[in-house]
């Protein structure tokens, strides 16, 4: 793959090496993430997802192996590691806990300012990021601490978007939000992905969300990459996923069962709208079981 924006080579990381608490968080990870793709990263708690994503923008230095961003080895010149942090934006879990400035505007500007941009450029980026996250102008002068949880999260995400990263990584951006807040954030991410062509890596526990948005799925299990491929292909492997203890989206499960019963429905149905189509098609054909 020539246009892999992120590539890892035999990436491994060991916590507290040489002590009784030694723990191999990721083990020999080799992945290539295509430019412009939307990757859903799934895995159990402790499967190494968070450790992996922190390697991709150089927050953690690998114990062994290499990370390439846009073909460059990010640890070749450790002094210039910040360059890659602007290129690969990382939104942590509960990012609202990192807000610190007096106003929303200043907080969003923190990243672009660190990039050394001019004031005019910073301002432009703040406004753009605010627009992306649905924060209207009156929010910008408020203190981030007087906002609601969902609003704070949008400010925090805007703080990363303002750096205009080529790769946007989000670690469970919807954790702890109500359905409306989740929907809002996910659609904003999708819109950012579509309008800028940025690569997105979304860590999520929700198979439904991944099925709806992701073009690719990366599954981590016991510190290793268990599966990586196109979303449709991955969610066909229902049995393997179950073995790992992960689920496929509810809709896919329903259709897998229908196929088992002999109904002629497509092999991979991921979303409700696809399901609707499949059911209508089936009804047109008479809806009889083939077998």
């Amino acid at each position: 793959m020539a246009d892999a924006i992120i590539r890892t080579e035999n990436l491994s990381y060991v916590y507290s090496e040489g002590t009784p608490y030694e723990h191999r968080a990721i083990d020999n990870v080799n992945i290539e993430i295509e430019k412009g793709s939307f990757v859903g990263l799934i895995g159990h708690t402790g499967s190494g997802k968070s450790t992996l994503i922190q390697h991709l923008n150089g927050l953690i230095k690998p114990t062994s192996g290499k990370v390439f961003v846009d073909g460059e080895d990010i640890w070749e010149k450790p002094k210039e590691i910040r360059k890659f942090r602007f290129k690969v934006g990382l939104v942590f879990q509960y990012p609202e806990h990192q807000l610190f400035e007096e106003t929303v505007r200043k907080d969003i500007a923190f990243g672009p300012k660190n990039m050394g941009l001019s004031d005019a450029e910073v301002e432009e980026r703040v406004l753009e990021a605010a627009k992306h996250t649905g924060l209207t102008a009156d929010y910008l002068e408020k203190s981030p601490f007087e906002l609601s949880g969902g609003e704070k999260r949008r400010v925090a995400i805007a703080g990363v978007l303002a750096m205009k990263p080529e790769v946007l990584i989000l670690d469970e951006p919807t954790a702890g939000l109500d359905p409306k807040g989740r929907e809002f954030i996910l659609s904003e991410i999708k819109a950012y992905h579509e309008s800028t062509g940025a690569t997105v890596i979304l860590v999520s526990h929700s198979m439904e969300d991944v099925a709806r948005f992701a073009s690719h799925v990366l599954i981590m299990n016991h510190s290793k990459v268990a599966m990586y491929g196109k979303t449709r292909e991955i969610f066909k492997r229902v049995d393997e996923l179950c073995e790992i203890g992960l689920e496929v989206p509810q809709i896919s499960r329903v259709f897998a069962k229908l196929r088992e019963k002999g109904y002629n429905v497509p092999e991979s149905v991921l979303t409700v709208s696809e399901a609707k189509e499949a059911v209508l098609n089936l009804l047109k054909k008479g809806g009889e079981a083939d077998a």
Partner: peptide, 13 residues
């Protein structure tokens, strides 16, 4: 440590 990582991700030096 978490907060430090988050601010570093935003380019804090």
């Amino acid at each position: 440590q978490k907060i430090m990582a988050a601010q570093k991700a935003r380019g804090a030096d």
